[in-house]
Design a protein around this nucleic acid. Structure first.
Lengths: 186, 186
DNA sequence: GAGCGGATCGAGGGGATGCTTC
DNA sequence: ACGAAGCATCCCCTCGATCCGC
């Protein structure tokens, strides 16, 4: 949750758009902004979804050429089930770490690419080139993420692995509950 | 002013829509919501649901010019793009401090050069040579300003960082509202 | 560079607070 | 002597990678 300040009249306007009791500011804004991007996306009429349906997320990234695309991808992400079965089996948290990252990558390559831009104070955490990781730290112990072109740093305690996972999942736009599950699976 | 809470991804999305230096959340939201109502208004098949309440208009920017010269300079600065999106994300106020200074530098190099002539009672605050700063104090912890040839002192509390920023922005000719926003971004 | 996992501890940075100076 | 302004000490927290256990 973030806190933002807005002017009173704008606040009143937004509050005036409430459709259900208990709707949060986020809900209302999503609806309003979503209505906009729908209108931008096509001139066709589409009010079939008004009211009943759960609203898809607003894209988390600033507009690219592929607005509508991104929207679809996100809503699909939100409903995909992770395959946790094999993961719990893996003997070490490092193994589970790699497996979970692999699933995130498979979920959506392009979102993963944006989400994995994360580094510590000195080390690079992700890269497609093993050497980049080796170069950024002394003994980062990079390992390949299965079924992907990426490498990750591995020489961290479990808490940090969890943090990295959390960051990527969150940056990819997963829902809080899912992020929690992913982190717990580590 | 009212304070509202919104979810992180929505926040990021909104922040990503920043177009000008000094834009507040209100400004951005007004633009986004306005774009929507424009589309609705121009449509023959206007949907009563959305149009039920008038969108408050964006207040005109108060460009109080006594001096035409100054006006021109200011307006050129005031329309340059300022990217606040990445800044809020930076983990420490020192990081944000450096990022903000970097943007000010990029905004106008020569104005920045004039504006950064500021010092404390003992310490030099800005310099193009790290050594100058080191020489002027005991532990000033100089750091390079990204994308610029300058260094700044870093070992100060946040209030002083804000003061320095304020001074530079003001000396560069930004408007009061914008200076305020820059300082708030710290 | 090859054994691997990862907890633990130390280095280093951030910046509030207290001390000094005017 | 008292207050304001500014410096830098020092504590805390984050992050790296050593080193031990398996």
């Amino acid at each position: 949750m973030k806190t933002i300040e807005i002017e009173d009249d704008l606040y009143l306007y937004i509050a005036g758009q409430t459709q259900h009791i208990g709707e949060s500011a986020s809900d209302i804004l999503r609806r309003l902004l979503d209505a906009q991007s729908q209108l931008n996306a096509s001139s066709e009429l589409n009010d079939a979804r008004v009211g009943s349906q759960a609203l898809p997320s607003v894209p988390a990234e600033p507009v690219m050429g592929e607005d509508v695309e991104a929207d679809k991808v996100i809503s699909s992400i939100q409903h995909v089930e992770f395959d946790f079965s094999g993961i719990a089996e893996a003997g070490s948290s490092t193994k589970r770490f790699l497996a979970l990252l692999s699933q995130l990558y498979c979920l959506d390559r392009s979102r993963f690419a944006k989400a994995c831009v994360i580094k510590g104070s000195k080390r690079e955490y992700f890269s497609q080139a093993k050497e980049t990781l080796l170069a950024s730290g002394k003994t980062s112990k990079p390992q390949a993420i299965p079924a992907s072109p990426y490498w990750v740093i591995t020489n961290t305690n479990t808490a940090r692995k969890r943090y990295i996972l959390q960051h990527v999942a969150s940056e990819m736009g997963l829902q809080a509950i899912q992020i929690e599950r992913v982190c717990e699976a580590l």
